Amino acid sequence: FPSALLGTGENWTLMKNISVTEYLNYESGKFSKTKGIGVFGNDAKATNIPADVWRYYLLSNRPEASDAVFTWGGLQIKHNNELLKNLGNFIYRVLSFIAKPEGAGYGSIIPEAPNADIHPLSQSLAETVGNLIQQYIDAMDKVKLKQGLKIAMAISSEGNAYLQVSSCSFLC
């Protein structure tokens, strides 16, 4: 296909990386559409599990370096412990705090970042998140999607930890 694009003489964007994976197995065996073993597009839709939950689970369980196994229990654990308890909790806490009326929060307006006198806890968070963002960029540049997602979730974990140890008197 790339040679066909080049042959046209037009300025097409060509692929720079090809992302390949190992095998994703189903529970204790292999996926087999002919034998009805596994979960396929229509089956996934019929579960009424939101598409983003499927996307998260499949990316977080992506067989990049070795075979991986799809399990219903694994899907439930990733959904409950990572999406809800980690990311969902972090988003809820941040939005709830921003939405609090002025005096208790920010009155639904995100303030400008301070230029000086940054609290040491905030400074530490900024440095940690800055390092994680660089790791994320490096992973994505190498098409390490699973690793990139894991790093993104680590940023969420750092945010949750920051909010947990911060008192309202510090944040308000």
Rank of each mutant, 00 (worst) to 15 (best):
Y23C: 04
A51P: 04
N115V: 10
A44S: 05
Q76M: 13
S32I: 00
S166A: 11
P111F: 06
N17M: 12
G29W: 01
T21V: 13
R55A: 05
A4P: 03
S66V: 06
T13F: 08
K142Y: 05
I37V: 02
L5F: 08
E22H: 14
G130E: 05
V39E: 00
K142F: 08
I77S: 15
A51K: 10
F97S: 03
P114F: 06
A65E: 14
A113Q: 05
K30M: 04
Y56G: 05
S169V: 11
I151P: 03
I77T: 15
L95N: 15
S124Q: 13
S96C: 06
L5Y: 09
N48V: 05
V129K: 06
L5C: 05
E22P: 00
K78W: 08
R93E: 09
H119Y: 05
I18S: 11
I49C: 02
N42K: 15
T128K: 15
E64L: 10
N42S: 13
F97T: 02
H79R: 14
L149D: 08
P63N: 01
S96E: 13
L95Y: 14
I137M: 11
A152N: 07
G105L: 03
D43F: 01
G148L: 01
W12S: 04
R55K: 10
V39A: 00
